[in-house]
Design a protein around this nucleic acid. Structure first.
Length: 882
RNA sequence: GGGCGGUUAGCUCAGUUGGAAGAGCAUUUCCCUUACAAGGAAGAGGCCGUAGGUUCAAGUCCUGCACCGCCCACCA
């Protein structure tokens, strides 16, 4: 084995092996419990970024863990066509060639898109293979492939026939750049600094005016009323009066509506029903007229000639100028407000009237909220439950039609003879109403999230066969792992559709993880230039290191910050694992077999077995509760700080022994713990754990197979007196640490072995120490230990203090008197401080009367030890000062 | 406006049911000791955001406040 671990070949080897062997293909097995996850399908535009890496690492960890627990696991891979996002990417590419989608025409454009997706669309799945993802590749799905498309049509038709889908002209969020309507969830609000313009609207009777305040003066062209709060005394008498809409010749009325906030602006609101959702609501309550003045290109129309054709912002500027010129503008106030932007292209959203298809989701939302309430869908962490149910309670109908080309075309058909539009699963040849042959399909496509919402069903070919065995066996899936940014866009809608089409949840657990940020806490984005490329990190540090680093910072529900440092330390951990294993394998040379039954021989053996048992239990429950970062930390701590730093060091003498039995005994334990650790670690670091597991098999002759195909974790031999053993070992560790500290403090070179004298203050501790003397000798580099009782410090000795002992270390002229004096004084300060604290605590009558007995005993013991130590130190100080 | 989360070492974060403040990185000193210098040993570094409360005992429970972040909302 090489001295340092080189992940590259190992990872390539194993990912190929898993794919070739179909290790993660899942078949129905009625004797086993299924555990299934469907991947949040990445967009075909995607190149693997840190968010994907995190999301998929976590899913992989869960899948591998469950597989090792004996579940029949399935993780379904796939990609999403990505609607607007993808169309935008391809349009940009076309632009570079000087083409536009309109110049190509719908069919040719779609052909280009299909081709493009053919060439690059699956690259992200290839990258997931590099990450080691345990996906069942035979089931790879795409939201626009045949089976999934079929599911979309089927779902649409079912909903249409239930009268849940309807067409209506309504106020929608319109992206002028993408040229399509968007759902409410697809709008992101961003704070922007702008102005609040105060404008006066004169009364038609010529007697004065009313002042309104607005951030969007250009929409005044579409005003159809002024609204005031009916309880606003300032305006109560004005309700019903007519004002003249400035810059036009239209007359509008002052109306009353409780939605108007008296304290905002002037307390008077201009109402533009066709271009503002609040105004829309007021208009509906008050039966106001809708006048559209902004078209789908974001230009003014239907207005005075001067303004028609101007873009919104141009119009705003000119209108403000005109208002000012004509004395209507009273004040321009700086103002911060939030502006809706397209989540795909960041253009400002224009609310405008448009004919769109809507889905009534109120019934399914009720069931979905209820499922969250009674934990049919359980949130990890649970804090997401509330925002989720709140959203569901306030939900509005879902605008599902999009005016783009890339996507599932609505299976809606129009008879040219004017019959009502109808939906059809199959391509219809005639109108079902009149039998007319002249029919045309709707031009719009569905919101990309419509097909995503069907994903947990469609991947199991619900579109083709609703009663198929896979669906029955694997649905509902077990867990959905996702970031919180798509909770409403996607997660909630899957549950809605799950209930609508399967009468059941699509998954039982919703594991919400954080979003990856850079080391300054900023969201990673290309424009900020702060992206850490996961593929580059794999290249530099290995996939296991990447995975470990991500797992380690994956606190559920919280965003995480990540930088190269995290990967570096994870890489070092991988190397540590590699070298510890290398040590063990090297020592296995000449070993023909190992003990099947692990029998602890020495205290350290019992100790490591006890520690392992404790850790193993803990890690399993951490995985179980999606506490992945906790599991990563526990793995790290056990392997490095317990197994490597202590047990392996202690075992070295026996591992090198010429006595075959001694060697076999200790190696059996080393291998046992190593294998156990590898299993616990495997979900997070699958490559290195598989590689070492296999290497151990190779060295052992008796094969145990692949680590991932073991369907149970190594169980520990129970150590009966575990607590006692842990305590004993702690004392030994303290003694060793004390001597090491002393050595370091007064600079005794490691090369020189020393003799020490233990002045025994506590007989019990003496027994423990002498029992484990070899450990102390070995780890503190001591030649000989003598025990004595009640002796004074011999000449030329330094003193190390620990529980139960003072340890004299002869120095033979090595000692630096001043240094040693300073050290003792410092130690004395420390201890006497603690002494004071403890003493005052014991004087506290309240404490004595109410604290539990054991607690007081503990403190008394501590006090005794501390007093002893202070005395000894004082003696030593006196001694040195002589 | 409503809701959620955060505030612990220079940085990134742990801290399970209240019972002597932890890790990684960075830093200082010593060590190329035959698993590992991508390493080992030792050290330095914390009024656990702030003000109160509950308790014998609070980083941990309760309340107010400050600051940061996120989500929701018809902030014209």
């Amino acid at each position: 084995m090489e001295k340092t671990y080189s992940p590259k070949e190992v990872e390539e080897k194993w990912s190929k092996f898993w794919i070739a062997n179909k290790t993660f293909s899942a078949r129905i097995d009625k004797n086993k419990k299924p555990f299934s996850i469907v991947i949040p399908p990445p967009n075909v535009t995607g190149v693997l970024h840190m968010g994907h890496a995190l999301n998929n690492t976590l899913q992989d960890i869960i899948i591998r863990f469950k597989k090792m627990q004996g579940f029949n696991t399935l993780w379904v891979p796939g990609t999403d066509h990505g609607g607007i996002a993808t169309q935008n990417v391809v349009e940009k590419l076309l632009k570079k060639e000087g083409k536009t989608k309109n110049s190509l025409g719908r069919e040719k454009f779609l052909e280009t898109m299909r081709q493009w997706r053919q060439e690059t669309g699956d690259s992200i799945l290839e990258q997931l293979k590099k990450l080691g993802c345990a996906l069942d590749w035979d089931r790879t799905a795409f939201t626009m492939d045949e089976s999934r498309s079929r599911a979309v049509r089927k779902a649409f038709v079912k909903l249409f026939e239930k009268n849940l889908i309807y067409r209506g002209k309504r106020l929608v969020n319109w992206c002028c750049n993408c040229g399509t309507a968007l759902s409410d969830s697809e709008v992101e609000y961003e704070s922007e600094s702008s102005n609040l313009w105060h404008i006066k609207y004169p009364f038609t009777d010529g007697n004065g005016y009313i002042t309104i305040a607005t951030t969007r003066p250009e929409t005044m062209l579409g005003d159809t009323a002024i609204a005031v709060n009916p309880r606003d005394e300032r305006y109560i008498d004005l309700i019903g009066k007519t004002v003249l809409l400035p810059l036009t010749d239209r007359k509008i009325k002052i109306i009353a509506d409780f939605a108007v906030d008296k304290s905002f602006g002037t307390g008077a609101l201009k109402v533009t029903p066709a271009h503002d959702s609040a105004d829309d609501a007021i208009a509906q309550r008050n039966n106001l007229q809708y006048i559209e003045v902004i078209n789908t290109e974001g230009k003014i129309f239907n207005s005075p000639e001067k303004y028609n054709g101007l873009k919104v912002l141009e119009a705003r500027k000119i209108i403000v100028e005109d208002l000012e010129k004509n004395g209507f503008l009273l004040e321009t106030e700086n103002y911060q407000h939030s502006v809706g932007r397209c989540y795909r292209c960041s253009s400002t959203i224009e609310p405008l009237m448009s004919s769109q298809w809507f889905l009534n989701v109120s019934e399914m939302s009720k069931r979905t909220a209820q499922a969250a309430e009674n934990n049919e869908t359980q949130f990890f962490p649970p804090s997401w439950k509330r925002p989720y149910t709140l959203w569901l309670e306030n939900i509005k109908d879902w605008c599902i039609s999009r005016q783009i080309w890339w996507g599932h075309r609505l299976p809606i058909y129009y008879c040219q003879k004017g019959c009502p539009p109808f939906a059809s699963l199959e391509e219809p040849s005639k109108c079902p109403h009149c039998g007319g042959m002249d029919i045309k399909q709707d031009e719009d496509v569905l919101d990309t999230w419509f097909s995503s919402a069907l994903w947990p069903i469609s991947v199991f070919n619900w579109g083709i066969d609703e009663e198929n065995e896979d669906l029955k066996y694997f649905y509902p899936t077990s867990t959905l792992a996702t970031g919180h940014e798509i909770l409403y866009l996607w997660v909630a809608r899957m549950v809605q559709f799950g209930f609508e089409f399967m009468q059941d949840v699509p998954y039982k657990h919703i594991f919400i993880h954080g979003i990856v940020r850079d080391k300054h806490g900023k969201k990673m984005s290309k424009t900020l230039g702060n992206v850490v490329d996961p593929l580059l990190m794999i290249e530099k540090f290995g996939a296991d290191a990447l995975r470990f680093a991500l797992a380690q910072s994956a606190a559920p529900g919280r965003d995480m910050q990540i930088s190269e440092d995290s990967f570096l330390s994870a890489r070092n951990f991988a190397n540590k694992i590699w070298n510890a294993s290398r040590f063990i394998i090297m020592n296995m040379e000449g070993l023909d077999k190992i003990d099947e039954d692990i029998k602890p021989v020495e205290m350290a053996d019992e100790w490591i077995l006890a520690e392992f048992e404790k850790t193993s239990r803990k890690i399993k429950s951490l995985y179980e509760s999606y506490d992945i970062d906790g599991a990563a930390r526990e793995n790290y701590d056990f392997f490095w700080n317990k197994f490597c730093d202590w047990y392996i060091e202690i075992s070295k003498a026996r591992a090198a022994s010429s006595d075959a039995k001694t060697k076999r005994q200790v190696l059996s334990i080393l291998i046992y713990i190593l294998k156990g650790s590898l299993q616990l670690l495997h979900p997070i670091m699958p490559f290195i754990s598989s590689e070492i597991w296999q290497a151990l098999d190779g060295a052992l002759k008796n094969k145990s197979g692949e680590i991932i195909s073991k369907t149970s974790f190594i169980e520990n031999v129970k150590i009966k007196n575990a607590d006692e053993v842990l305590g004993k070992m702690l004392s030994i560790q303290n003694i060793i640490a004390a001597i090491r500290a002393l050595r370091s403090e007064i600079n005794i070179p490691l090369a020189s072995n020393i003799n020490v004298v233990f002045n025994v203050l506590d007989e019990k501790k003496r027994n423990a120490a002498s029992e484990s003397e070899s450990y102390i000798k070995r780890l503190a580099k001591i030649e000989k230990i003598e025990y004595a009782k009640d002796i004074k410090r011999p000449k030329n000795c330094a003193v190390a203090l620990t529980e139960g002992f003072e340890i004299f270390v002869p120095l033979e002229g090595l000692i630096d008197i001043d240094k040693e004096k300073a050290r003792l004084q410092k130690e004395r300060e420390k201890i006497s401080l603690e002494l004071q604290r403890t003493e005052s605590k014991l004087k506290d009558e309240n404490f004595i009367s109410k604290a539990p007995e054991a607690e007081i005993e503990k403190i008394k013991e501590r006090l005794f030890q501390a007093r002893l130590k202070v005395n000894k130190i004082d003696e030593n100080l006196a001694y040195i000062s002589e």
